[in-house]
Design a protein around this nucleic acid. Structure first.
Lengths: 223, 223
DNA sequence: GTCTATATTTTGATAGAC
DNA sequence: GTCTATCAAAATATAGAC
């Protein structure tokens, strides 16, 4: 049976089969992201994914042949957004301003995409068995490129010499902490739930310490 | 049947029932720590725990009535060691020296007790459902007490004013990162496995940045 | 593409002999 | 205290009608 050229026979306004597919896949991925990020791969149940995406379980399997396929699809998406914040580190920018912008961008990601962040943390913590070589190399290359930017700033005497890989680790760990270990952050900040104010305070505190630590004076917050 | 006073009738050298119990429980907890830390609560299988501890599965259930009991026993142990490093922060010490010692103690813990660290990370990431109020309050109180030490240093003009809760978060996240997200750390440092040298470099880099960030000059490494 | 009913496998937990 | 055989409850995945 010819299934390839079916779409063109549809009227506008009516849901084409591709639109249905897109919508259902999106609903499944959204539900799965929430569940996997909160309960991990093994803890999340396919029945829950189905319920939360508003589809019968069999339909979920119609779109994704196995639980693992949903998880993989989510992991693949993560890689794309992981290094977005790195774009802030442009060689022609003022180092203090660029690093501060990077820290704020990472914290914005933590706050706005906490589920993605947790999913990523879970995957890494479990040994990164699904994050393939390609994805990890991508992260590695992106980081290496930006390490050269910082090297340049140091060579130009615009900031104190630092250990760049460990510097990146400090920034990653600190900014991700608020999303991944929000429970601990809440305890430390003596609050029930992290608010925008808490994230702003975090940005200020991290920028202050890091910039001073790099021999750069703190800049005024831009937003 | 009187089971209470059975132990005293044994000869020395022979395994008493209590020694057997102690040995088996230890074997189970050791295996469980390894498995739970790598695979999480749901990912670890009781059959694996049994195999890895060298006991038949039924014996594991003889000592621990349920999977959850093993997990709880491990979590309870964690709390005890969590705040050990905080002891380095004594008010009469030199702030730079004390903070550097704290960072090194935390990194030593990361390196020497990576499984415990990962188990803790996994538990927090999953919403801290087993870590009870008592445990969390314990951590909170210990941290609060040490926050006052730092407050004192700031009041005495011995270090620049900083946001103390966020400062603790920075130290926790950075030092734990090497144990919890070792896969990422390896990628960043372009190595296959973290060595003592890597941890020493981490200590140096973190101390340099943090101490300078606090307005304290770096101290010479003590070990 | 949708959905009910069901198959299959896994796995936490137990019975009961030694 | 030890251990084999087994249960019962999930949970992943599929069959097959619509």
């Amino acid at each position: 049976m010819a299934i390839a050229t079916k779409k063109s026979g549809r009227k506008a306004g009516q849901d084409s089969e591709e639109r249905i597919r897109a919508r259902n896949e999106a609903a499944i991925l959204e539900a799965a992201l929430d569940l996997f990020s909160r309960k991990g791969f093994d803890g999340a149940r396919m029945a829950e994914v189905a319920e939360q995406s508003g589809l019968p379980k069999a339909n979920v399997y119609y779109y994704f042949p196995a639980k693992e396929d949903i998880y993989r699809a989510l992991i693949d998406r993560l890689i794309a957004s992981w290094d977005t914040a790195l774009e802030e580190l442009q060689p022609e920018r003022d180092p203090a301003e660029a690093i501060a912008a990077y820290i704020r961008a990472k914290l914005d990601y933590s706050r706005g995409f906490a589920a993605q962040s947790k999913l990523f943390a879970n995957e890494i913590l479990s040994g990164a068995k699904f994050l393939d070589r390609a994805g990890r190399r991508h992260v590695q290359e992106a980081t290496r490129a930006k390490a050269r930017v910082i090297e340049g700033w140091i060579a130009d005497g615009r900031m104190v010499p630092i250990d760049i890989p460990h510097f990146f680790i400090m920034l990653w760990s600190t900014t991700q902490f608020y999303a991944d270990f929000d429970v601990l952050a809440c305890d430390a900040l003596e609050t029930a739930k992290l608010t925008k104010k808490d994230y702003d305070a975090a940005a200020e505190a991290i920028c202050a310490l890091v910039l001073r630590g790099c021999g750069l004076s703190p800049v005024i917050q831009s937003t």
